[in-house]
Amino acid sequence: MRGTEHTVIKGGLTSRKRKKRILDTVCFILLAAAALTVLMPLWFMVSTALKDMDEIFTYPITWYPHNPVWSNFKDAWMSADFTGWFLNSLFVAGFAILGGVLANSLVAYGFAKIKFPGRNILFTIILGTMMIPEFVTMIPQYVLYARLGWVGTYLPLIVPQFMGSAYFIFMLRQFYAGIPNSVIESAQMDGASHFCIWRKIMLPMAKPAIMTVVVLSFNWSWNDFLKPLLYLTDTARFTLQIGLKIFVSQSNTQWNYLMAASCIVLLPIIVVFMCLQKYFTDGMNLGGAVKG
């Protein structure tokens, strides 16, 4: 410790640089260690995907495939209409993103930046909707959609996405809360409407948050199982998550195919994440706007 003190006295700049480098190295080591723990299960997933059933059944478990069967990926995918289901999932997820961004950013703006009577009660109700398990309202919800004639169509999967979700409304409201009111007030002085402020100021400023909504709503729509199961009746209209379950039966599971197909199913989410990840680090640059 005395050594570092010494260098501090000698030359502040180099020591700070060195300190930064040490911190960065520690940081990197920690990240790498965390990444390893995250990777282990994923590795196991990929390796199972490459095994044949004989090897899966051997004991003790092998941690890498001894005879990798690359054709598992193709065979799993071709064993049913996965390509069609993939496109269906993409279709539904597209609407989920569109609806998720539009509805939630509007509603959250209303809750975060406009004062109106009943706001707090309504917001509490929104929070409350998150707290009731989905399967308790499932039956009345199904009956309602059945009466509307929506069963067998994508409408029950798509329309609610345009009505906002409690999670995203809450989340965006928290992000908007960080945007100074002075920005809005000065815009209002210039005669801008709330819609205009939302469109021209809020959306661009909250880009990282919006992109988070995009990634998450894509992810959740992509992984949704219960709703497609309930509301889709035609095999040709199924989504991927129902499809994946064909490898799981009552007594047997084709683990290699299940894992292989699961790996492929992951790819689109990875791509979406990769494309958008630069936004998460862009930052909203709120401070700059205030001082400006």
């Binding site: 499932m138 039956i139 199904y142 009956v143 059945a146 009466r147 069963v151 199982f225 219960l226 199961l229 309930l230 129902i242 379950k245 064909i246 799981v248 039966s249 009552q250």
Partner: peptide
């Protein structure tokens, strides 16, 4: 899917 088929059938029966 196994198990889930009954959930779906229940909803359909209720409707």
């Amino acid at each position: 899917p196994w198990g889930d088929v009954w959930t779906k059938a229940l909803a359909a029966t209720a409707a």
